[in-house]
């Protein structure tokens, strides 16, 4: 292939795509809204934006592949540190497994709820189309009976003794609503007026809503959900938090060994640091009553002014970088053979 063997052509292609990547959002921001609307982009903006996110999302396998390759090799060949690599892989696949199981369970609940939701939706549709008798009504009746029976059997899946007090209340509320809907009369009547259909639709929506809340609350007691909670509350959050908490201890050692006041500027810096710390802690006002106000002033006036200057400077530099990046002004690596 000619293109594939010509580094300059490749670089041009890469530059072209870099430019094309930015042109959509740039145009969307600079073009007047009326123009964006008239060419139909506004209507499809959500889907187009999703398309851009998809491009990035496709990279998700890169990290997984690398990590499995690096640590899998260690485990298979029992190289130094293979037990740690095994722990990593167990953590990785355990997480994927537990999250998948939890997700599939949630999707099943979602499908069940949507089936019940359909009773109200179908009733609303018939109402909108002013259909109050005939085959569609008997279809609504048949479907409603089937779904309400199913819902009733699913909510009894756990014995009442295993429900929390909040769940018991939800169940009572839901059972009452289902009974009300069954007793509506619409489920057996042949001739139905519009008002009755509207009432039925409204009650059916309420049943679906309560059913959704109750089914979701039941999910919190499943083994999969407990494993999922354990993964986060017992391992991930604890480990992550502890890892970063080490910094709190190190900063104490650094306070003793490294924070030396040697010049006027370092004295200024240390004074500002001490005021900020004392002004925020509860002991600060015991030392000097005006400490919180002094801290507030320091943050609002000199700090904000200096920080704004830094931020504006960095922002302008970032803007220049963004333009250069978008227009591929600095992109020697695109034409480099080594990369």
């Amino acid at each position: 292939m000619v293109v594939a063997n010509a580094p300059d052509t490749r670089a041009k292609i890469i530059r072209l795509f870099t430019f094309l990547g930015g042109i959509y959002f740039f145009s969307y921001f600079v073009l007047p809204e009326s123009v964006v609307e008239s060419i139909g982009i506004k209507e499809r903006h959500e889907q187009i934006s999703n398309g851009f996110i998809v491009v990035g999302a496709m990279a998700l396998g890169l990290g997984l592949f690398n990590i499995i390759r690096a640590h899998g090799t260690k485990v298979v060949f029992q190289r130094s540190g293979w037990r740690n690599s095994l722990a990593l892989l167990v953590g990785l696949f355990g997480t994927i497994g537990i999250m998948s199981a939890q997700w599939i369970g949630a999707l099943q609940v979602s499908r069940d709820v949507q089936d019940v939701q359909m009773i109200g939706e179908y009733a609303s549709k018939l109402m909108a189309e002013k259909i109050t008798q005939g085959a569609p009504i008997s279809m609504l009746q048949g479907y409603s009976k089937e779904q309400l029976d199913r819902a009733s059997s699913l909510i009894k899946v756990r014995p009442e003794s295993q429900l929390t007090s909040a769940q018991r209340l939800l169940e009572q509320d839901l059972s009452r609503k289902i009974s009300d809907l069954r007793a509506d009369g619409l489920l057996t009547r042949v001739d139905i007026d519009e008002q009755a259909l509207a009432g039925f639709a409204q009650r059916a929506h309420e049943v679906a809503s309560s059913y959704s809340v109750f089914r979701q609350s039941l999910s919190s007691g499943t083994t999969v959900q407990r494993l999922y909670d354990f993964l986060y509350d017992g391992l991930f959050n604890q480990l992550g938090s502890a890892m970063f908490a080490l910094l709190g201890v190190y900063i104490a050692a650094a306070a003793y060994r490294a924070f030396r006041v040697r010049t006027i500027e370092s004295a200024l810096m240390m004074s500002a640091a001490v005021i900020v710390m004392l002004g925020q802690i509860s002991f600060g006002k015991e030392i000097y009553e005006g400490m919180p106000s002094l801290r507030q002033w320091l943050l609002e006036v000199p700090n904000s002014a200096a920080f704004r200057a830094i931020r504006l400077g960095a922002g302008i530099a970032g803007l220049m970088l963004a333009i250069r990046m978008w227009l591929s002004i600095e992109s020697k690596s695109f034409s480099s053979e080594k990369k």
Binding site: G248, I251, A252, A255, Y256, R257, A258, F259, R260, V261, M270, V274, M277, L278, I281, F283
Partner: peptide, 13 residues
Amino acid sequence: AHLVIIGLIIVGN
């Protein structure tokens, strides 16, 4: 904890 840090900075100096 902050009082300890401020104390350590003072002692360290």
